[in-house]
Amino acid sequence: MGVIVKKVELTWLDRSYVWPIAQGMIITFRHFLKQIATPTSKRFTIQYPDMKKTLPKGYRGLHELKRFEDGAIKCVACFMCQEACPARCISIEAEEFSELNFTQGFEEKRPSVFKIDMLRCIYCGMCEEACPKDAIWLRNEYEVAAYDRLSMNYGKWDLINTYAGADGKARLTQSQESPATPSRPASTSGNQAGPS
């Protein structure tokens, strides 16, 4: 179905160009005065490195792997997020876990490797939707950048710590976890020089 465009009949005043141009110039000058009178911080432009946009609730930024209060990881390595991911950027390896003094002790399963390739991630939030344990969240951090491709490959400990600074919590490393973790080196997670 086409749209019927109404043809605007121009009056002789409009045809002369002079009056419409004067009108337009008045409009732009009004904008000029308004913009001059506004202090820089109150103008429309968000001057990015100095000012940051307040993000809406539910913004899908960098991921965080959630933990219980006692520090046990919520993820049970069910592979739901890996399946749901349209970009195929999540790769998980599961391991057995039977330390009963942690909340997770009842679960008996957790990821030994949880990798997200941030270069492939499209921040769609499907992993968040798919997670039965509410263990992976997409939060409001959006400055995900690095100098090489390898450091964009976030491992389990990077993902746990992504919002440690923002939440005012201490960064967790593998050694702080219970000594009962299997002696198998779980840090195949690339590097620790992830985001801060």
Partner: peptide
């Protein structure tokens, strides 16, 4: 700068 002000922008700063 002037064009920025006319268009509600900020311009080079």
């Amino acid at each position: 700068r002037g064009s920025a002000m006319l268009q509600d922008r900020i311009g080079p700063n």
